[in-house]
Design a protein around this nucleic acid. Structure first.
Lengths: 220, 220
DNA sequence: TCCTTTTTGTTGTAAAAACAACAGAATTAT
DNA sequence: ATAATTCTGTTGTTTTTACAACAAAAAGGA
């Protein structure tokens, strides 16, 4: 567990919790760890889970699959970030998404019931932990709001402009790198890849933007 | 405040909190109330808010507006349910949605900072309150996941079937009432109303479903 | 290096959606 | 009860997207 102390201290879940509090706390939370290869499932759609995960090394994608196996990337989780905390907080609800590694990945697991139930002996750290979890969930909520804002645009063009302008604002620069390749971006925006590539070409021809691989520049 | 005790006791935020704890708690949370007419804004897009709201009587819609004023219904909030708790938990982030009454409505407001900051004198109720907020946010998260599942379907037909089958499962019956009229459903699914009506007609002609006003029946 | 695989851009065609316009039904107000 | 307003379904036209197929470019492996 010692090797994870850096990532734990930097994570938003354990923000403001001192190192001496950290390790007793991990035991209380029934913390565990596991390592995975690239493209391995950590959780499957339909699972009922009690543990929330934190990516220690590597990265995972949250994906949604329909009956015929069409995949949609909901989000990408980087080191220090949590996943499945929503389902771990409502353990009776079967997961509607799967968690899949993008690369070799190590994950830490925490029992959500333990996080949410204060034990008399350690009320202060529990309170802090819960508050951290609340703001993490609030931020995740805002991310989903943002995705909804993009995918509810009516045309591929509007979806692209909505996403790209939001990225530019987020990065504070008209030139920025996106964390998706073309197929992943099309999946995220829920459009056809070739139609999206075509639309990107038109936007470039019309002088609204430039791009090279995953680097985009919004113009004027 | 007494007149709200029924709705407060039934709300998920105050679940498990006894009546004698309730009123001291409300004062500590800086609780307030306000009444609104139909179609009045409670919060506007761009507001930075510290108070989360609970509908006491009536109902409100969470709506998203783009630059040209096109509206999209994100969700509908009924008595006892919370709204704006995400923004109240991240008060530095401007709201990307507005809150608009659907009918004459009374709202209770609670200061989110007070909810999230335990005061030494009343640690137990704060802890309970925070845990209630966590599961409320988790449930809201799942609702957004569900909406994303619908709107990321590629065609109007698939969006309709995704939404309607989810409603049927939720209500546990193949015949059910939806809380939207046609325009609201089209806004929720982010499609054109007339194209959606047209598609509903085709689905009915093909024998997949029946409907009368807002009552739907899924067949076979 | 060369070969293989993956990613990206492009095009033509078929299908679907958006849009506009309108008529009938239902609801609300007077 | 009647008029006005809102809601819903329908149709034809225009625009957009999905789909399929393929070639060029880039990335990765032997």
């Amino acid at each position: 567990m010692k090797k994870y102390s850096e990532i734990l201290k930097q994570s938003s879940l354990f923000a403001g919790i001192s190192e001496e509090e950290l390790f007793p706390m991990l035991k209380c939370l029934e913390a565990g760890s596991a390592s995975y290869k690239k493209n391995q499932f950590i959780y499957h759609m339909g699972d009922q889970v009690e543990n929330l995960g934190m990516v220690a090394f590597g990265s995972v994608s949250i994906i949604q699959e329909d009956f015929w196996g069409n995949r949609n990337i909901v989000s990408k989780i980087m080191p220090g970030q949590l996943f499945a905390e929503t389902y771990a907080c409502t353990p009776q609800v079967p997961m509607k998404v799967s968690v899949l590694t993008d690369e070799p990945t190590t994950v830490l697991f925490f029992n959500a019931g333990r996080v949410l139930t204060t034990c008399p002996s350690s009320c202060t750290f529990h309170s802090r932990l819960i508050r951290n979890l609340v703001s993490t969930m609030a931020r995740k909520n805002l991310m989903m709001n943002e995705k909804i804002a993009h995918v509810t645009q009516r045309s591929t063009r509007e979806k692209l402009l909505s996403y790209l302008s939001a990225e530019a604002i987020k990065k504070g620069c008209s030139t920025f790198e996106i964390p998706f390749n073309r197929q992943q971006l099309a999946d995220y925006l829920s459009v056809d890849r070739s139609a999206m590539s075509n639309e990107l070409g038109k936007l470039r021809d019309e002088g609204l933007l430039e791009f090279r691989k995953s680097e985009f520049t919004l113009l004027e």
